[in-house]
Design a protein around this nucleic acid. Sequence first.
DNA 1: TGTATTTTGTCAAGTTTCTTTACAAATATC
DNA 2: GATATTTGTAAAGAAACTTGACAAAATACA
Lengths: 407, 407
Amino acid sequence: MKKNAAAPSPISLSEGEYTTAVLKAIENRVLQSRASLARHLGLSRTTASTIVSRLIGLNLLKEKHSLREGRGRPGILLDLDETVWRVIGAEFHSGFWSFVETDLKGSIVRTMSIKVDRGDSGSFLSGLVEGLAEFSKDVGGELLPAFGIGAPGLVDCDRGLIIRADDLGWKNVLVSEYVEKKLKSKILLINRNRGAGLAEARFGGGRGMHQVVYIGIGTGISAAFIIDGELIHGTSFGAGEIGHITMNKEGPLCACGKRGCLHVYSSGTAMAKMAAASIAEEKDSGLENKWKTGELADGEAVCLAAKEGDALALECLRAASKYLGLAIANIITIYNPDKVIIGGPIGSLDSPLIDYLRNEAELWAMPHALGAVKIERSALGESVGALGGACLVLDRKLSLASMVRNK
Amino acid sequence: MKKNAAAPSPISLSEGEYTTAVLKAIENRVLQSRASLARHLGLSRTTASTIVSRLIGLNLLKEKHSLREGRGRPGILLDLDETVWRVIGAEFHSGFWSFVETDLKGSIVRTMSIKVDRGDSGSFLSGLVEGLAEFSKDVGGELLPAFGIGAPGLVDCDRGLIIRADDLGWKNVLVSEYVEKKLKSKILLINRNRGAGLAEARFGGGRGMHQVVYIGIGTGISAAFIIDGELIHGTSFGAGEIGHITMNKEGPLCACGKRGCLHVYSSGTAMAKMAAASIAEEKDSGLENKWKTGELADGEAVCLAAKEGDALALECLRAASKYLGLAIANIITIYNPDKVIIGGPIGSLDSPLIDYLRNEAELWAMPHALGAVKIERSALGESVGALGGACLVLDRKLSLASMVRNK
DNA sequence: TGTATTTTGTCAAGTTTCTTTACAAATATC
DNA sequence: GATATTTGTAAAGAAACTTGACAAAATACA
């Protein structure tokens, strides 16, 4: 019988519904012995046992010490097996490719960074291929056969392409297609800020939370919304673009053509401009020296100066917080999350920014929603965007691991 | 063997994973013959056939005419069976309980409305019980044994209680517990505006859409976010409370204690106040007459006057749209929906409001997100909140129907 | 027109998945 | 130390899904 040529791809109900459920339950640290898994998932102990055996066989789970509690025979604790499989994620950021190798628990075991010399999308792609090939050589375990990539710009996750990245001047960069051809390995693409948010929600301060909002502050501002560990993409992969919400219709002109975007008030770029303007008015600041000696006073420099107590820098942060704090307050009111994580190159710095934001948000958010939320600084380090890429691979660990083992 | 007393309720993987999938596929009008269902869900034709037989046996599906297309034997089209089961939903609104009876497709076949004399939560509850008992008598089919209720205020859907309803002065109204005791039937509770949004997303203009935003405009303003037909509740059931986002820190004082909430600019209450103030300044308006003869010029009256071309009323709508349109623009930018539905007692009126809102939103939303969205007026009629309640019952139609048939 | 081709829906038989029943092992309680 | 309780696994049985076969109902083509 010939197969229907025009057949749509089947809606896969995931391989072994219960197997996925068991893995998820253990990841979420809900319950851990075979018997408690069975109760929790409404399965017989026997079935839970056979599923666990299969997962142990795939090196996805392992047994830990016994759980001594209650009356009868103690159960054997189960946990993700972080000793065998390894995952590679990558992120492109300000001219560099960063790579991370993680275990199944999302712990980073190795990193690498390479510079991409030119700014065109071709160099971006070849840099990625070379970096992945190089970085894959020294993997300290078995590699799950996929790479998760955090890319700049508007990303079509389904088709694996960058629809456009305006600051870089790119359009329709077919990342997955190109890299998959070169490396014969599945490529999973995501916007780097959404990836960072996903990583924070899964492995950072958002762990175990219900609705997480990640606010990434760098040269721009971007958000990610994660519900029960799943990212909200939006209809055309644009959910989270808070940098260009309008805070003030009569505000300064933004690069996007509109007036009064959040971006012109609270981004790293905005902070740097504000500092420069103040310095031009010859206010006293530590930044002045650097500025005069030719160093670029970017948003990060302003934050670090603020941390040292520099009055001018503190004023810049306070001004930026007024608008971003209000935006966060409104997001809390609208969306009722249980965690807001402030991250990105600027947001994750140890500066007074987080306190300013919290104060401002507490002033304007609705009490009921405010009572349910915690606003925290990012807990994960530098490579969080690449870790976000790794999350995409980890989502598929069951099918990837069985693919490797069955061939 | 005694059951574990402290056992948490099992995560039911829904009864028959594939059965649910088949029902969903037919609801979404994706595919309709047994064979195409099988392909779509990755099942054998035999299994699809047996599942369909069971669903037909439960009167959830029925066969329609044959599908004549392509080469071979034509498949038999399947559709929801709207002739047997009936669902009852209810909504409380401005002192009235509204009831709807619907079929499995969410079509309203009968309605009823009763007045609740007093404003206390006791009368609210007894009115509901009496209304449900009364309305259930004349059901034109078999009743799915649950009632879906759209209630005012902040609703805990899991526990079936109104946490609080500030405008009514209620706190901790245990709706489900009370009604279930009286009527021996399962009660499913939801906030009436979220219910309305859910109904619009499922059966109104949001049908088949990915991410729907419903904006309900009445005396207050409230939103609902629906992704793939599922409502976003928020961590503490507060998602959607856009009435109290801050539009202007120096704005007028709101009843909530903050300044410049969307509520004080764009709600029905705000429109009415604006109109009254303008009339006090003796501007010319059709409203003036009604106002002077003692009729309350509420937001709906303002909208209707605006529709008739009244200059003063038009000005009120335009002013209200400036803020609400901006809020909608920002929601579009942040959330990237494919449909924004303007509803509620005021939003669903045939007035110029929708055009004003659209114009304003188009001015301020990010082009990429704007290109993906359509802003439309509510398509469903009056009883949309009660229909939202019915949605909750329809979500459980499989288990409810099999419960009835197996006992 | 008649025959070949294609696709659907269903039956019977076979496979896989999950459950039930039973039991040894490991701990707490009395 | 005896009893009660809970865990993990094995063997047999039940349920769910697949395979292969076939009649039925349409189109395509000679």
